[in-house]
């Protein structure tokens, strides 16, 4: 073995032998992997390197973006008119609903004051686009065209018009990686909209299915129930639709029911997405109540 390496050393010219070189590189890789696995300290390296990779990703996205533009500009008049009509009627319906929502919000605010609980903080939205780029084939990751420059931060929720899509995992200067709620390593705290029953929805690796493994057999949940974010994980704002329950199997022999749900958001179809901020600019995991509790706990 040593002679083989020594022999090829001449071919490589001067410098350390390939064995030494590869050992050093493997050692370096192991260090990088460990540091990256322990979270955080390599974010700067990653975002610097993303200056190289982002143009590549943009280039890959270019044809599908161009195709979309082209099909928009080539659409004929009748099609545009009918789309316009549909959008107008939808807008009318939505603005009617918003009128009611505003009065409800006022009422909610008054009731919360009566209960002496803190006012809810409003949210700010920013529209972003997903790049048509295929990342890890075995995981559900997407790339957003907004990054640090636009104030995107780690853990930020990602929505589309119909519901929660996922959260931001890595932020570069111009783009950000996000994990979808159906990724097998993702979990999102939810509650049943009908009765406030709280649980956790896990991703399955199947883009059209979530799993609710922690509900007992006698839990009050049935197919068709809407699951909304409960806001308990301090990551997602409260009250956004996540999924609709499709199947509830109560198995007499088991402690927990087998419950499946279908994501409300169009996870593999939507290109336009929304990023959410709290109106006061703080991250969602900032909870003054929690800090008070910590202080109280640490005080005496």
């Amino acid at each position: 073995m040593a002679t083989a390496f020594g022999g090829s050393n001449k071919r490589f010219g001067h410098g350390p032998s390939p064995l030494v070189r590869v050992s050093l590189l493997v050692l370096l890789s192991v260090v990088i992997i460990t540091v990256d696995y322990r979270e955080g300290h390599l974010d700067r390296v990653r975002s610097t390197l993303s200056l190289i990779t982002y143009p590549i990703q943009l280039m890959v996205d270019l044809p599908s973006a161009a195709f979309e533009r082209a099909s928009e500009s080539l659409a004929d008049r009748r099609q545009l008119l009918s789309e316009n009509r549909a959008l107008r009627s939808e807008r009318l319906e939505l603005s009617a609903r918003v009128q009611r929502l505003e009065s409800l919000e006022q009422e909610n605010e008054r009731l919360r004051q009566l209960l002496q609980s803190g006012a809810r903080v409003g949210e700010r939205l920013l529209a972003a686009e997903l790049l048509q780029v295929s990342l890890d084939p075995f995981r559900h990751r997407v790339l957003v065209d907004k990054g640090q420059r636009d104030g995107v931060h780690m853990g930020q929720p990602l929505l589309d018009a119909d519901g929660v899509m996922g959260q931001v995992t890595k932020v570069g200067p111009f783009g950000a990686n996000a994990i979808l709620i159906t990724d097998p390593s993702h979990a999102i705290p939810v509650e049943v909209n009908r009765n406030g029953l709280r649980t956790i929805a896990l991703g399955t690796g199947d883009i059209s299915r979530l799993e609710l493994p922690y509900l007992p057999n006698n839990a009050d949940i049935r197919p068709g129930d809407l699951l909304v974010t409960s806001g308990l994980g301090m990551r997602f704002p409260r009250g956004y639709p996540v999924a609709i329950v499709t199947e509830v199997q109560r198995r007499p022999g088991e402690t927990f029911a087998q419950i499946h749900a279908e994501p409300a958001a169009a996870l593999n179809r939507s290109r336009e997405v929304l990023l959410v901020w709290r109106e006061d600019g703080l991250p969602f995991d900032h909870n003054p109540l929690m800090e008070d509790m910590d202080d109280a706990g640490g005080g005496p």
Partner: peptide, 26 residues
Amino acid sequence: ILDVLTGSLLGQHAMALAITAVLVAT
């Protein structure tokens, strides 16, 4: 670069390709 591009753990493709490369080179 591949690690950053696909958002995988930083260094995993780097290590795999480096080891593959030294095997090919020998």
